[in-house]
Amino acid sequence: MSAPAIIEAKSVSKWYGQFQALKNINLIVHKGERIVICGPSGSGKSTLIRCFNRLEAHQEGDIVVNGVALHGKMTNVAAVRSNVGMVFQHFNLFPHMTVLMNCMAGPMWVKGVSEKQARKTALKFLERVRIPEQANKFPIQLSGGQQQRVAIARSLCMEPAVMLFDEPTSALDPEMVSEVLETMTGLARDGMTMVCVTHEMGFARAVADRVIFMDAGQIVEEGTPDGFFGHPRHDRTKLFLSQILKH
């Protein structure tokens, strides 16, 4: 691939006390690429993407995001983070602010954008996730799927170079999963660089350029969706897929 790398992880390892959560992870995410990370719970997928904006610290190896190396003594972590959007399993919207203000806060307070401009940007992205009419409500007045779409819009308002999704549909009712996935598919179509931790295999098949399977802190297998779903090589992958696709 010729596109520049946005995230580069080289031999990354991480421990929680004695427990090794990440083992020698190597992964390069290029601009415009859509990557889906899947694997059983506790396999380190969330930990890995949380290392990409340094919500978690890795102990060994290097992570370079947008040309900036992440490490414990960095002073410009906020600059990196504002360039990396993150969507959480539990949305984590700011409950004391309206939907609109949730979206305006980042640009205004971090980038110093004027209120007028921030409002314009916020409305643009709320339009994009198809809930501009909810702008003046508080998050708790929205359904789970709507809240998650607001969370996506909030991240987009920062105009990040890459979006990280940490199981964005796991806390949603089945009916609301599709509205969030549609939003994400739309984003992918528009060329956003995305790293998604998800169990939505339909989404992976339709959108991903690469699927990565993790188990016990390691990348076990990676490949194109066709190869990954059609001809999984490892027994662990086969077992996982048989479990998850059974129903």
Binding site: N53, L55, A78, A79, V80, R81, S82, N83, V84, G85, M86, F88, H90, N92, L93, F94, A105, G106, W109, V110, R154, S155, M158
Partner: peptide, 11 residues
């Protein structure tokens, strides 16, 4: 989660 969301936005 509120701390994490704030940090992830660069606050």
């Amino acid at each position: 989660g509120q701390w994490e969301a704030s940090r992830s936005m660069g606050f």
